[in-house]
């Protein structure tokens, strides 16, 4: 009899262990799945990204100055040009949202050098995160989400969230002073999280980077404020005239900077190196475009660039993968 009990006990324990790892007892933890559930909202747009659903594909060439080569083994920083594909997008889960209503704009690209090393980059207009951990970021998204019944955001909830997170001050200061530009081509995009450049001696240099536009609103094609696709149409006119360029400026942390905290700005005085210029020479609609099938996971890095220990950065891979998995499955089943 006791042997039967032993048998049942062991088998039950084994079954519970399996269930534990499938996440069956894990309903309170902030997982990649819960994150993407929150991002996609109640009605997911099948086949589209769960965040930054609306965008436009682009292609061009990164013209490296060679000035970063001594800090990183990555071949992309050697003097010369490497083609890339990329995407401009706006925040939100709606692939037909009006361009000018989005609070955040993004520039992503993927660049592969001839040694088969790929660098995927996803940059946003804010220079910092409001919070420093995935859990807090999840709560931020929850606070900012519209109420499922009234479909409206709750100002009290938002206020309470930011009051409970004083580290969001830098972000909120930026937000208060940020004025959206009249073009994707005139925004400044930030890596937000820090990475390490790894040089030939395997020494690590903590960096953040920005894509700084060479154009400004004074010298661009006009924007049609009435169109839902205002930014995309403006960009098409702009690229038809001449390639759109961004300088890739890398700032180096000093011992005073915490590269693992994405909520603080580094002082302007930090050593900054112009790694090269992103030259965007062609555009393509994302439906059927080359960027539609890309997962711009910023943790896909070439030898010579490594992730910092920033918890937000390290959470991005799993969340992007879950979003990519869902839409990839939808694309497969709908075709």
């Amino acid at each position: 009899m006791s042997k039967k009990i032993t048998l049942i006990a062991i088998i039950t324990l084994f079954a519970l262990t399996i269930l534990y790892f499938t996440g069956a007892f894990n309903s309170d933890a902030v997982t990649a799945q819960r994150f993407v559930n929150l991002q996609q909202g109640e009605q997911a747009h099948a086949g589209f990204r769960r965040a930054h659903a609306k965008g436009i594909c682009l292609a061009g060439s990164f013209e490296s100055t060679g000035e970063l080569a001594k800090y990183s083994q990555a071949k992309v920083f050697d003097l010369g040009a490497t083609p890339f594909i990329g995407r401009f997008s706006i925040a939100g889960n709606n692939p037909t949202a009006p361009d000018l209503k989005a609070p955040v704009r993004s520039l992503a690209f993927s660049i592969t050098t001839d040694d088969n090393q790929e660098w995927r980059v996803a940059m946003n207009t804010p220079p910092v995160m409001a919070v420093a951990t995935p859990d807090a970021f999840f709560k931020q998204l929850q606070a900012l989400s519209p109420d499922p019944v009234t479909k409206k955001r709750s100002p009290e909830k938002i206020k309470a969230f930011f009051a409970a997170h004083p580290e969001s001050a830098v972000f909120n200061n930026w937000k208060a002073s940020y004025k959206p530009t009249s073009s994707f081509a005139t925004e400044q995009y930030h890596s937000i999280n820090a990475f390490y450049l790894v040089d030939e001696n395997n020494e690590k240099h903590a960096v953040r980077w920005i894509a700084k536009p060479q154009l400004s609103d004074e010298n661009i094609q006009p924007l049609n404020n009435d169109s839902a696709d205002a930014l995309q149409l403006q960009l098409k006119d702009q690229v038809a005239q001449a390639p759109v360029k961004f300088d890739m400026l890398f700032s180096f942390a000093t011992a005073e900077d915490d590269e693992n905290n994405p909520t603080v700005l580094w002082p302007q005085s930090r050593k900054t190196i112009n790694a090269g210029t992103l030259v965007i020479s062609s555009l393509q609609a994302q439906e059927g475009g080359v960027c539609a099938d890309m997962n711009f996971d910023p943790l896909v890095l070439p030898t010579g660039i490594e992730p910092s220990a920033d918890p937000i950065l390290r959470a991005r891979g799993a969340a992007y993968a879950e979003s990519f998995r869902r839409r990839a499955k939808e694309v497969l089943l709908n075709n």
Partner: peptide, 9 residues
């Protein structure tokens, strides 16, 4: 595939 922890990579 679920965790958002720092050891993910």
């Amino acid at each position: 595939v679920q965790s958002l922890a720092v050891w993910q990579i």
